Amino acid sequence: MLNLGILISGRGSNMESILKAIKKKKIPINPAVVISNKHDAKGLKIAEKLGVNVEVFESKGFKGSREEYDKELISILTKYGVTPKNGLVCLAGFMRIISPEFVKKYKNRIINIHPALLPSFPGLDSQKQALEYGAKYSGCTVHFVDSGMDTGPIIIQAIVKVKENDTEKTLSKKILKEEHRIYPEAVNLFARKKIRVSGRKTIII
């Protein structure tokens, strides 16, 4: 069985939706470890409650480079069996850009969720961008992580209608509901070996 490592920085609501789906035996994967780069991340307590190992590796005050930080992160993942051969890494509100070395080592084994219909509105404040552009539809995207900013092959997307009276807060809430639905679905597809990457595209088998 594959070993799953989840990286968080805050509450980790997407982490929680994945872990609960695993607990209900909907995803055949071992939740090996949750790692936070912040000691006060609320998601750590949620993970512990769900019986998952937690580790904290503070990024604030870390003296080394991004590459050196990621090297230590990889050693923690490896300790729990989350390896490039037998692991999957999920970014769930992890507020750090991971290094090209990390991406290369775990090629097509790191996935992320983004609150927009990529390739539209990558980066920060996606919901705000969608409202400012007058988008009629927004949503969320689960994608593989590559060395670009939200540019990796797309696995699943969910669409949300943008209403005239939507604010950043109301739109974010609607999108988050869909995030909690499709992220576990993407992890399940990966765990069951139902995803094949071909160039920029993913093929669901």
Rank of each mutant, 00 (worst) to 15 (best):
V103W: 03
E68F: 00
I113Y: 02
Y106P: 02
K71E: 08
E101N: 06
V142Q: 12
T78D: 11
E164V: 09
Y133M: 10
N108S: 12
V89C: 02
K105Q: 10
Q157H: 10
F94K: 01
V103Q: 05
K79G: 01
L131A: 13
I154Y: 13
E164Q: 13
Q157N: 08
Y69S: 04
Q127H: 15
I97R: 02
V145F: 03
K79N: 06
F144Y: 15
D146H: 11
Y133R: 08
P153C: 06
C140V: 02
D146G: 08
S138A: 15
V82K: 09
G81W: 13
G93I: 12
P153E: 09
V103C: 09
G148M: 12
G81V: 10
L88H: 02
L124H: 08
L88S: 09
P122G: 09
T141H: 06
I113C: 01
L73V: 00
R109N: 08
I74F: 03
I156M: 07
Y137F: 15
M149T: 09
N112H: 10
I98G: 03
S147H: 02
N108P: 07
P119Y: 07
F94A: 05
S75D: 11
P115I: 00
C140W: 06
V160R: 10
T83I: 05
L91P: 09
G81Y: 14
R96I: 03
G81E: 11
T151A: 14
T78S: 10
I111G: 06
Y69I: 01
I76S: 05
S99Y: 05
P153S: 15
K104M: 07
I155E: 07
G123R: 10
G93M: 10
S138L: 12
K163T: 09
A158D: 15
